[in-house]
């Protein structure tokens, strides 16, 4: 019976984490899809590996180092966007690799065998402990509150940045906040599916929701629902099949995206 999984604390923690991560991921994934910021997100995620390496070296909780490095990455992306916009592509790719390089060096100089390396890269929602849950809850509250407060300004810069600038909206500051929220969400998502798989969980539910919804708010809501379905569904499926959770979740997300594409094609005809 799959339901017997519910009696285990680790599984309850995993379900709670799936729920909390789905909220932030649905909201921020919507911005990433609407504003086409996958490369920005990928760069931030891989820079986070540097933070994971640092935590490993210092022996602290990996999420702390990840949070710290993700915010530094968000600041870098904001600066690149402002001062080197026409070289953004190359610089973001550089940031991507440099973060990984820093992480690898930290892991190299740490004594002992890096057993967690695989978990960093591919995540493991089944290893979420109560400290992780508390941190994920705190990050969730920040993301939801900030999105509520800055919603209209994010809309303005996402739709037409130039006319927002003419209205004297502090565009760069708004981007710094948006990139920081993306960074915090990435940290949470990494705990679930890891750095390598993170971008799919962050974007595919929102991209699917976008096919059937008119407004940013409704895309956010449905992206949350779909993320919840694929993470919880993936958890149970991986338990039943005794497969690793992350890859199953990603395959579910891809399945939902393909199904959505198929449905929207039928709807149009």
């Amino acid at each position: 019976m799959v339901l017997e999984a519910l009696q285990y604390t680790f599984f309850q923690n995993a379900l709670a984490a799936a729920f909390l991560v789905s909220i932030a991921s649905g909201i921020i994934g919507t911005y990433i899809v609407v504003k086409r910021m996958s490369l920005v997100s990928g760069s931030i995620a891989h820079t986070v590996f540097g933070g994971l390496g640092l935590s490993y070296y210092l022996g602290t909780n990996p999420l702390l180092g990840a949070t710290f490095f993700s915010l530094i990455a968000a600041a870098f992306v904001t600066l690149i966007r402002k001062y080197a916009r026409n070289r953004m592509d190359a610089l973001l790719s550089a940031l991507w690799s440099v973060g990984m390089a820093i992480g690898l060096i930290f892991i190299f100089i740490t004594e002992g065998y890096a057993t967690d390396l695989f978990t960093f890269l591919f995540g493991n929602i089944l290893l979420v402990n109560s400290f992780d849950l508390a941190l994920i809850l705190a990050l969730d509250i920040i993301v939801v509150a900030a999105t509520f407060v800055f919603y209209n300004v994010f809309m303005a810069i996402a739709f037409d940045e130039e006319s927002a600038e003419v209205r004297n909206v502090p565009v760069t500051l708004a981007y710094l906040i948006l990139f920081s929220l993306i960074a915090l969400t990435i940290v949470m998502v990494i705990k679930v599916v890891g750095i390598i798989l993170m971008i799919a969980l962050l974007t595919m539910p929102a991209a699917t929701a976008q096919m059937f919804n008119k407004t940013v708010k409704s895309i956010m809501f449905w992206a949350f629902i779909l993320t919840l379905i694929v993470t919880v569904g993936g958890l149970f499926a991986s338990f039943a099949l005794d497969f690793p959770t992350g890859p199953i979740i990603i395959l579910f997300a891809a399945g939902i995206y393909l199904g959505g594409m198929f449905l929207s094609k039928i709807k149009k005809q």
Binding site: F150, N152, V153, A156, F159, D160, V169, I219
Partner: peptide
């Protein structure tokens, strides 16, 4: 410069014209 596929209604778009020189605007 404008995202013509932007998921918003006409009303929402016009309201964006009311945005001003601050970060928080309801």
């Amino acid at each position: 410069n404008v995202d013509l596929d932007f998921p918003a209604t006409a009303m929402e778009i016009v309201l964006l014209g009311r945005i001003e020189k601050k970060l928080i605007k309801f």
